[in-house]
């Protein structure tokens, strides 16, 4: 079975970061998830996905000029400017395999986990946030997420 044995020999389930992202997207009205398996190890994939100031902007093309203003203990604050010139102050968590950021008007989630058959499963969610609420405006979300992962795959080819 896929669970590990813990104290007392009771098996426990493993909830990887992609599964956690699915939970987040399912919990947020309007949230969708796009997933893809890339034929590369996790560290190589995350070297691009988790690099907010460089790699990130190459596949999240509406998020250009991201600048990390604070990063401490897995918490991160970044200022981003979209291609339309809008600024966003993003706050959240960044660690290998997991990124969750929100601003007043944006929600952005990314996850990556080793795929049992080889390679790395990547997943993205997010979109335009209903201001200050845990909800995403469900307009063209799926298509944009699919495009984001297609660009990531191209970037890593």
């Amino acid at each position: 079975m896929s669970g590990d044995l813990q104290g007392g020999g009771w098996p426990t389930a493993e909830l990887d970061d992609v599964r956690r992202l699915r939970v987040m997207a399912a919990a947020i009205p309007g949230g969708r998830v796009s997933e893809r398996v890339l034929p590369l190890p996790l560290d190589e994939v995350w070297a691009v996905m988790g690099d907010l100031e460089d790699g990130f902007g190459r596949f999240q093309t509406d998020m250009r000029h991201v600048r990390v203003v604070r990063a401490e203990g897995g918490r991160v604050v970044a200022v981003a400017r979209s291609r339309f010139g809008m600024r966003a102050r993003l706050e959240g968590t960044l660690r290998p395999g997991w990124c969750w950021l929100q601003s007043r008007f944006l929600i952005l989630g990314m996850a990556a986990a080793p795929e049992p058959g080889g390679g790395t499963r990547v997943a993205v969610t997010g979109g335009v946030r209903v201001p200050a609420r845990a909800a995403i405006i469900p307009l063209g979300v799926r298509r944009e997420l699919d495009r984001t992962l297609a660009r990531l795959a191209d970037e890593l080819r």
């Binding site: 389930a13 493993e14 956690r20 987040m24 959240g92």
Partner: peptide
């Protein structure tokens, strides 16, 4: 607050996994 949501998820996930593992076995995840 969706950052609090993901923190809550990180907080609850090990507890839920500990319950689901012995009951659902291979279907635990």
């Amino acid at each position: 607050d969706t950052v609090a949501m993901q923190d809550l998820l990180a907080h609850l996930a090990p507890y839920v996994a500990r319950i689901c593992g012995p009951i659902a076995l291979d279907s635990g995840p």
